[in-house]
């Protein structure tokens, strides 16, 4: 974990690190990664990963509309919208 890695992961996370905070955050992340590195000492050969405590297969359901159409309400709470769409800065020139 160094400044270069922090630059890469902040790009992946779509986050900008303030100039003054780079050093502190690099140090924090390094400490956290060092802390979780103790997991490497554990023998986990032949152990299946546990992704969810229920371990149940998600059930499928019929593809029916069950929710009310909230288009108006949802567009109303958007930072920028017109009658039909969410608006963002121009993507295609």
């Amino acid at each position: 974990m160094d400044k270069k890695t922090v630059t890469t992961i902040s790009y992946l996370s779509r986050l900008k690190i303030d100039d003054g905070k780079e050093e502190k955050i690099t140090k924090d992340l390094k400490n956290i990664i060092n802390f979780v590195d103790q997991l490497n000492d554990v023998d986990t050969s032949n152990i299946e990963p546990l992704t969810n405590p229920l371990e149940k297969t998600a059930k499928s359901r019929t593809d029916e509309v069950t929710a009310k159409n909230l288009k108006k309400e949802l567009l109303k709470i958007a930072p920028s919208s017109n009658e039909d769409y969410f608006l963002v800065p121009r993507v295609v020139e």
Binding site: I9, S13, R14, L15, K16, K21, I25, L29, I32
Partner: peptide, 18 residues
């Protein structure tokens, strides 16, 4: 995202991305 999230949330997102 940079304006909206505080330091601890940012730290955890970064660790997660890593």
């Amino acid at each position: 995202r940079s304006e909206g999230f505080g330091d601890e949330v940012k730290r955890r997102i970064l660790i997660g991305s890593y």
